[in-house]
Amino acid sequence: MTELLLSPLRRLGHTTINAIWRLGFISRFLLAILRYSGQSLLRFNLTIREIYFAGVMSVIIVVVSGLFVGMVLGLQGYNTLSRFGSADALGALVALSLLRELGPVLAALLFSSRAGSAMTAEIGLMKATEQLDAMSVMAVNPIARVVAPRFWAGVISMPILAAMFNVMGIFGGYLIGVVMIGLDSGTFWSQMQNNVDLHYDVINGLIKSLCFGIAVTLIAVFEGYDATPTAAGVSAATTRTVVTSALVILAVDFVLTAFMF
């Protein structure tokens, strides 16, 4: 009888301790990455290679999604704004929603599922096939050789991808608003320029995407490094990367928005 009462409590305690342990581990992991970054950035071509796989390969999906998000914003925004007789403000609406929220957040979500999951799977598989141990045996630090280049590649790529997403989104809004619906092109741009502020909107959006880049890549490399070294373990780690990244992106976005705007 007492066992029946105690076992759920025990399970709760185990989950809590585990969560806190992982939080501590991920913080120490970040410190280790930062400590060995110097070594790995000296061989910058490692990072460039990872930028190619994480950043350049994500361009297509980010650009296409940006274009479509912009076009949808244009259509929906026009429908709503024209009801209040202020369809002229479409340019401002599209640019502000993209720069402040949609660009950084959606680009980060896409990046985490396109590149983050690949990083986790790659590092997890390296661990499962004992490549990381082999490196340690050869006195090559796996964090400096494998983890840090991927981390910096993600941190560098994320703002660039978000900026591309924004530009394509604004272009999509322009296509719908000006080319298809026939709003005045001058009004579209001047409304946008009157309402968008360089520091307040553009720079804050880039800072956001930089924070997302740090969070997403750290989660991805950590889950890979922490994965149970089996086929099932790597697949579970990849799933966790995508789910945790999405939740962390949304939570960080809320906090940053509360502070910034």
Binding site: G55, I160, M164, M192, L198
Partner: peptide, 17 residues
């Protein structure tokens, strides 16, 4: 990739902002 990224930021600051 980096050049297009920089061009995108420049576009956002000049044309949008």
């Amino acid at each position: 990739f980096v050049a297009i990224g920089i061009a995108a930021v420049v576009f956002l600051s000049l044309k949008a902002a």
